[in-house]
Design a protein around this nucleic acid. Structure first.
Length: 584
DNA sequence: GCCGTTTTCGGCCCGACTGTTTTCAGTCG
């Protein structure tokens, strides 16, 4: 049987949606396929099993038709309906949909009028000045499309959260200094703490919108102004990042902030709810449906949610994945926050590939406010990272013993980030692992193993009682490397069963485990270790990125390993390994 | 194509901006 994972299924559904759009099908049918793709990506269980049992039919957004399509895909590896559609459209035509500012209607029109069937053909027509003849396209259309093509090629416009956050803070600072904004906040996916951000959204309350808009256009990084209306200004910075500013009245601000925080899907559901309750929600406020002039008073986002019969929903949760239902029933979790963290796990020093010494890393952890740190340098297999052989481990143990004497009131756990070998065993061997207080086990090699082998490898490591934490579980690198191919659901089940914690690695390029997987794991009782993977003192700040991902994944303090106190962690470690920690 | 405490048929979120138009369709979020 062909192995079709959820990403592949979602990609097919998205492809179908794109082609239905090109066909000019009912927009809601298109939407249904897009929603289906999202639902599959977010579906936490085993897709094959859910198809076999029919459980998938119960997932919102998967109706009879989508179910049978998905069933065909996972059981036979292909879908005739998809093939039929593909045969009708050249692949280049679907590529054209990715150009910003170019949608299905325009692509279809250009295909019909000029036979354009690829981005290259479209570019040529624009350059040759042959576009303006087509009805609906004028002199400026070609220019705009060419810019869109350039943009698409440049970066695909995606940015790490950290980079976007830094730029957003700079923008907020400069706009704040103008004194033109009574209220000013960043919204959008950045506020929702998505790991990857496409553009920045700012919302302001101001009595002088034109001046504020001008200040926005005049920001030092602005390369191009892409939209410029009385309430909305869009720019692109020289580094390719796009940013929007919306200016509203003070009274409208809460609704505007809510609206521009999104996500699209969350807002769609929220508006449908408002409508059902005979109200109307838009970016200016909440109104009575039968008397549109009558505003439902709301001084804050919390007021808006309350008026809709909902508990306040934290921005991180607003992904349209059941948070509204949970808020309705008072079942939202108390999300973990940085204040809940008692200690830091997964810390490197100069002994392997860190840039600061043991003493400096420990002191910095104490200054951050932690009451313990688990030092986890690389293991012997990681020669490229200066990994420690057994002899050096024992020497480090002595160094830590000595440092403990000089660091009263602060607990130092001696750990390792040990390599999981291809067969799932840990490179030091189980016996030697007993020398550590805490073992983080990670995959650093053989990413290409077949799925079944890769899964078995991770499960074996998780079931090893010496292993406390599975480090960066999928090994992905955002924007550059797919994670290893493993059955995450099986990994989660193994963690739940054995009690091994899964890491939420806060390194900006990792943010692994992905938040989409966390929620199901939390429900199953899995513990998470929210770690910086720090290679220098300043990288302790990565913990806050990990916390953002944990919050998106509905992780609570109770589900967080390093929200335990030092004593609790020690007790947990002893229980996990079924024996005492090394006598130090 | 999906969905149901108005409904198994008839809805499906809503508005700003652009570029082309003289009243609007397309795109985006």
């Amino acid at each position: 049987m062909a192995s079709v994972d959820r990403k592949a299924v979602a990609a097919v559904l998205e492809d179908i949606a794109a082609m239905l759009e090109l066909k000019g099908s009912n927009a809601f049918k298109v939407k249904a396929y897009e929603n289906g793709a999202r639902a599959i990506l977010a579906f936490p269980g085993d897709l094959h099993a859910a198809v076999a049992s029919g459980e998938l039919k119960k997932v919102p957004g998967i109706g009879p038709s989508l179910f049978s399509n998905i069933e065909s895909l996972v059981t036979t590896g292909s879908l005739p309906y998809h093939e039929e559609l593909r045969a009708q459209f050249p692949p280049g035509l679907r590529e054209c949909l990715r150009i910003p500012g170019v949608g299905a209607r325009k692509v279809k029109q250009l295909h019909d009028a000029l036979g354009i069937d690829s981005i290259e053909a479209l570019e040529r027509i624009c350059l040759e000045g042959k576009l303006a003849g087509v009805k609906g396209f004028g002199a400026r259309s070609a220019e705009k499309i060419l810019r869109g093509i350039a943009m698409l090629r440049a970066t695909a416009g995606l940015h790490y959260y950290t980079r976007a956050r830094r730029r957003a803070d700079e923008v907020l600072d400069l706009l704040q200094r103008t004194g033109l904004a009574a209220r000013l906040q960043v919204a959008g996916s950045l506020r929702r703490r998505k790991e990857i951000v496409r553009d920045l959204d700012f919302v302001a309350a101001s009595g002088r919108p034109e001046e504020l808009g001008r200040a926005f256009r005049d920001l030092p990084w602005v390369d191009e102004v892409t939209a410029d209306g009385p309430t909305k200004t869009s720019v692109r910075f020289a580094d390719g990042m796009a940013a929007d500013l919306r200016v509203v009245s003070d009274e409208d601000f809460p609704a505007a902030l809510q609206y521009f925080t999104g996500s699209q899907e969350h807002n769609t559901q929220l508006r449908a709810r408002a409508k059902k309750m005979r109200m109307k929600l838009n970016e200016y406020g909440l109104f009575r449906a039968d008397s549109p002039e009558e505003r439902v008073p709301a001084a804050s986002e919390a007021d808006l949610y309350r008026a809709l019969g909902l508990d306040y929903i934290e921005p991180e949760l607003r992904e349209g994945l059941g948070e509204i239902e949970a808020a309705e029933h008072g079942e939202l979790p108390r999300l973990v926050s940085e204040e809940d963290l008692e200690g830091v796990i997964h810390v490197h020093t100069t002994e392997s590939d860190g840039r600061d010494s043991l003493e400096v890393m420990v002191e910095a952890a104490r200054e951050v406010g932690y009451s313990y740190a688990a030092i986890t340098d690389h293991s012997k297999t990681a020669g490229y990272a200066g990994g420690l052989n057994e002899e050096r481990v024992l020497a480090q143990r002595e160094a830590i013993r000595a440092l403990r004497q000089r660091t009263p009131g602060f607990r130092i756990f001696h750990g390792t980030e040990a390599d999981i070998l291809a067969d799932g065993s840990i490179d030091y061997g189980d016996e030697f692992l007993a020398n550590f207080d805490l073992v983080v086990a990670s995959v650093h090699s053989r990413f290409g193993l077949p799925r079944a082998e890769q899964t078995a490898r991770l499960v074996k490591a998780i079931r090893n009682p010496r292993v406390a934490v599975l480090g960066h579980p999928t090994g992905r690198l955002l924007l550059s490397r797919e994670g290893l191919d493993a059955d995450v659901e099986a990994v989660i089940d193994a963690a739940a069963e054995s009690g091994c914690a899964l890491e939420i690695n806060g390194s900006p390029e990792r943010l692994d485990l992905d938040w989409r997987h966390c929620r199901r794991a939390v429900e199953k009782g899995v513990l998470f270790s929210i770690d910086p993977d720090a290679h220098a003192t300043r990288e302790y700040s990565y913990v806050s990125l990990g916390v953002g991902i944990a919050r998106k994944g509905w992780v609570t303090p109770q589900s967080t390993l390093n929200a335990k106190t030092a004593d609790e962690l020690e007790a947990w470690l002893i229980k996990r390994r079924g024996g005492s920690l090394p006598d130090l």
